[in-house]
Amino acid sequence: MKIGGPRLVAAATGYGRARMLKLRSLVFLPVLLAASCVFSRQDVNEPIEIAVVRSFEPGKTTAREVVERLGAPTEVVQLGRRTAYRYDCSTEKSTVLFLLVINFANQDSRSDRVWVFFDEKDVLTHCGTWFGTHRTQYALPWEDVHEKSDNDARDAERAGAVR
C-alpha cells in the first residue's frame, strides 16, 4: 500500500529544506554575535603650524629663522651649493571590522609636508607646502572618503590649509 502521494513527498522535502536553511543560519550566527570593530589612530611628529609657514618670505627669511620657528627639520638635503629642509607630520586612521572568518580593513593616511629651499647663503628661495592630515577619516574599505566635497569641507575647517 502506498502512503502519501507526490504532494506529500514534495511537502516533506520543502519542510526539510526550510529546516536545513534554519540550521545553516544558526551555524553562521556566531559571525554576527562575535563581530567587532577596531578604530585606531597614529600620528607621527608634531603638527605643523600653517600660520608660521605662511609667514616665511623668500629672499628674506634665513635658515636660522626657519629653525627657530619650526624647530629641527625631519631631514636636511644637500643640493650642490643649496640645501633643502623637510618638515612633515602624518596622521593615519585605521578601521577594521572583524567577522571571525573575514575581516574588512581600511587604512587612510595623509601628511603635512613643508620643504624649504635655501641658497648657498642660507637665505630662503622657495617654500613648498602640502597640508593633508585633516583630511583623514575612519571608513570601511568600500567607502570613498576623499571625494572633492569631502576634502573641501575639511579644508574649510582648517584655516590656511589651501591657498
Binding site: V27, P30, A34, L100, V101, I102, N103, F104, A105, N106, Q107, D108, S109, R110, S111, W130, G132, P141, W142, H146
Partner: peptide, 23 residues
Amino acid sequence: LAAWPLLLAGCVTGKYTHVSVNE
C-alpha cells in the same frame, strides 16, 4: 560545523583591505 574550531581560533581568516596614502 567542523570548520568552526579552526575559524574561531583565528587560524584561517579572509580579509579585504583598502589602503590610501597621500593624494
